[in-house]
């Protein structure tokens, strides 16, 4: 997940200081990915090194306001116009666990599936409650929707595994 590009997108709306960036980042992603202020400043200083942002003057509370540069805008445009590659995602522990359980013969795969399905459904219920309670606008709801679709896909895949394994037996 790219904090760098998220911050560039926020800075494209106007100059901001680190704390402001953190608050707005969390608001637009529904606090799904909490950022600590240290991450924000580390990222800002790397982006400054790469010429994507420029620090300005400190405000009355001593906070440095950052502005996006032309190179920063170009980088942000490139990010928005490039699709995310599937293989960039980390390995999925559940997939590995299930493959091992099936290959292992001495594990009750049905039980692994059943436990996981109930746990995933609980997570899905929590996400749905969060979505019902979501008040910070459409960006937040769509982030939660993304997680709902992912949990749903996992649930469907588990049902599929169960059906296939039942036939194989």
């Amino acid at each position: 997940m790219s904090i760098r590009h998220g911050l560039l997108a926020l800075l494209s709306r106007g100059p901001r200081h680190g704390y402001q960036l953190r608050v707005e980042f969390e608001a637009s992603t529904g606090a799904t990915w909490p950022l600590n202020i240290g991450q924000v400043y580390t990222t800002l200083s790397r982006m400054e090194r790469d010429g994507l942002v420029e620090p300005g003057e400190s405000d009355e509370q001593g906070r440095v306001v950052y502005t996006i540069t032309a190179a920063g805008r170009a980088e942000m445009d490139r990010w928005f116009s490039t699709p995310v590659v599937q293989s960039d995602r980390p390995r999925d522990e559940l997939v590995i666990k299930l493959a091992m359980a099936v290959a292992g013969k001495n594990v009750d795969v049905t039980d692994v599936i059943r436990r996981q399905r109930t746990a995933t459904m609980r997570a899905l219920q929590q996400l749905t409650r969060a979505k019902r309670a979501a008040t910070e606008g459409v960006a937040q709801r769509l982030v939660l929707d993304s997680m709902i679709f992912q949990a749903e896909a996992e649930q469907r895949w588990l049902d599929h595994c169960e059906a296939v394994l039942k036939e194989e037996r």
């Binding site: 059943r114 399905r117 109930t118 459904m121 609980r122 899905l124 219920q125 749905t128």
Partner: peptide, 26 residues
Amino acid sequence: HEPRYAAWADRVVFLRDGEIADSTDV
């Protein structure tokens, strides 16, 4: 049969071959 809609429920009951296999029991 759709998980996304079941998730609106207080409780989800899973049926398998005519028996209750599991429940989220919230």
